[in-house]
């Protein structure tokens, strides 16, 4: 399934478009997407930091996603690095 991943914070440095689309085999869990995202980052983004991904979570528009959870049916997620609001 095709998954569109929105990039925020320091991940925006990786791709100025602010999102990336990846294909992951079904049935796909969040952990599968994490692995695919890391492989894509290492292969295509000089600014990619695996340590930042390890400290990040994936989320839908309404909630944070657990690693063993299925990916949202609409194929839209965001990767959220550590937050620093306020």
């Amino acid at each position: 399934m095709k998954i569109s991943i929105s990039l925020y914070g320091a991940f925006r440095e990786c791709d100025p478009r602010g999102s990336v689309e990846l294909d992951v085999p079904e049935p796909a869990k969040v952990s599968d997407l994490r692995a695919a995202f890391e492989a894509h980052g290492l292969a295509h983004w000089p600014a990619f930091k695996p340590g930042l991904l390890a400290a990040s979570v994936f989320a839908s528009e309404s909630t944070l996603l657990r690693e063993n959870e299925a990916l949202p049916a609409n194929g839209r997620v965001a990767v959220l690095p550590p937050v620093s609001g306020g």
């Binding site: 914070g9 320091a10 440095e13 400290a55 989320a59 944070l64 657990r66 690095p81 937050v83 620093s84």
Partner: peptide, 23 residues
């Protein structure tokens, strides 16, 4: 889910390290 990037007088810009979220 908010991220702060500080822009310094010397021209450098840095994303703050922040707190990891936890599902």
């Amino acid at each position: 889910p908010i991220w702060k990037q500080e822009h310094y007088v010397d021209g450098d810009s840095v994303w703050s390290e922040g707190c990891s979220l936890c599902a």
